[in-house]
């Protein structure tokens, strides 16, 4: 990889930090279940736009930070976000040419995968299983917010020449 062409790494870093902060912002209890998965969305965007810079390892690292901050099992978010990065890197060429209304379905399934996995891990740890499909709410809100996330990150990437 020719690293001299890489620039604007701080934008990627800052977008991840912002996404992590958005995961921690206090919401009322009912809204907490609907919190969009900002980190997964930002990760999907960068894996799609710059697969040569952001990939499996970045996903894993961000997941590890999230594990520590959210108090989940060390490695839980790391594993699943590495998988998200892998899958979105794998299909990045196709994803780029999809229109937004088609992309949202890919985002929905990836975020749903994250939360199904988290629910499964919680169950293994002895938490009571959610009776409803509560763990899928974040996938739904991410579904609706993806176009905005995508467009704003693309503006950032183009405006600040992140390559």
């Amino acid at each position: 990889m020719n690293l001299d062409h890489h620039q604007g790494g701080w934008v990627i870093f800052a977008s991840f930090i912002l996404a992590i902060l958005l995961m921690l912002i206090p919401l009322p209890l009912w809204a907490g279940f609907w919190r969009p998965d900002w980190v997964a969305m930002v990760l999907i965007y960068w894996c799609m736009a710059l697969p040569q810079r952001v990939g499996v390892f970045s996903g894993w690292l961000v997941g590890l930070v999230l594990d520590v901050l959210l108090g989940s099992l060390l490695g839980q978010h790391a594993l699943v976000l590495a998988l998200v990065a892998y899958l979105s890197g794998k299909v990045h060429r196709r994803l780029r040419v999809y229109p937004l209304r088609q992309q949202v379905f890919v985002v929905f399934s990836l975020v749903a995968m994250v939360h199904v996995f988290n629910a499964w891990m919680r169950h293994l740890q002895g938490y009571p299983t959610a009776s409803q499909l509560e763990f899928l709410y974040p996938a739904m809100t991410s579904f609706f917010l993806w176009p905005w996330v995508f467009i704003s990150l693309r503006m950032l990437r183009r405006g600040l020449h992140v390559r």
Binding site: L74, G75, A82
Partner: peptide, 21 residues
């Protein structure tokens, strides 16, 4: 390759989770 990386990191994560729990 990303596949190899994913494999290695998954093993590492599972080990971390197991050790943490």
């Amino acid at each position: 390759s990303p596949t190899l990386r994913l494999g290695l990191l998954s093993v590492l994560s599972v080990a971390l989770m197991f050790a943490d729990a």
